[in-house]
Amino acid sequence: MTSLTTQQGEKDRLVEIRKLVFGYAERKIFSGFDIDIRRGQVTAIMGPSGTGKTTLLRMIGGQLAPQSGQVIVDGLDVVKLSRKELYKLRRRIGMLFQNGALFTGLNVYDNVAFPLREHTQLPETMIRDIVLIKLEAVGLRGGHALMPNELSGGMARRVALARAIALDPMVIMYDEPFTGLDPITVGVVMQLIRKLNDALGLTSIIISHDVQEICAISDYLYLLSNGRVVGQGTPAEMQANESPAVYQFMHGQPDGPVPFHYPAPALVDDLLPKPTVAKC
């Protein structure tokens, strides 16, 4: 609810992250960076494993609070919202978890119907129509009676996507949507993300480290490393970026600013025999 500094083009920023700091005493995960997510675009946030990408999504959704800094979603400061206001905001945010996070006790139909039943007073016939339309959009209308354990990884993610768009959110966040899928399914999911974004006028945030797929479908990229944004730009700009950190990530070099070796004393020191010290 804090009034924002009026800047040019402020209107078309859906998510603004300012000076985000988060971490534990010994290890800083975020050491103060800014990210802007524009309405209507597919924005990807990339980075090596363990850079806290999922943590970032949780902060946008208000599940975690940063130690300092602001997370502003559609003009609301997520950190300062009351629980009720936060829940209200979350109804307009769809989130696709890494493995879909479908409710294992409910079948596909009930999974997609879940947010509708929880948040609307719609009659069952209308819920049925909406569920079938959403399932049709992800191509799984025929599988509405299946249980989650009967679905393949890709199908589960598509169902989860149908569930994420059930309440017609303004933004969808994807947590590693391509991990563990076969190439065909990756293609299907890529196409779905782009199509849904454009057809429904959504804004999409993708967390991933799959460079090829991300470059193919996003409008703008951020690269996180060691708690800061080390590069940003359109896919073409990022591919051409010569800074060592960006180059290493975009082109998959084994060694570079992100070292191959875990910090260790020199190999020779470790190999040389040492006098054994009696333990107390």
């Binding site: 959704g61 599940q63 209200k88 979350r90 109804r91 945010i93 989130m95 409710f103 947010p115």
Partner: peptide, 9 residues
């Protein structure tokens, strides 16, 4: 977590 993000406690 998914439920929480769907604004269901």
């Amino acid at each position: 977590d998914g439920m929480e993000m769907m604004a269901v406690d």
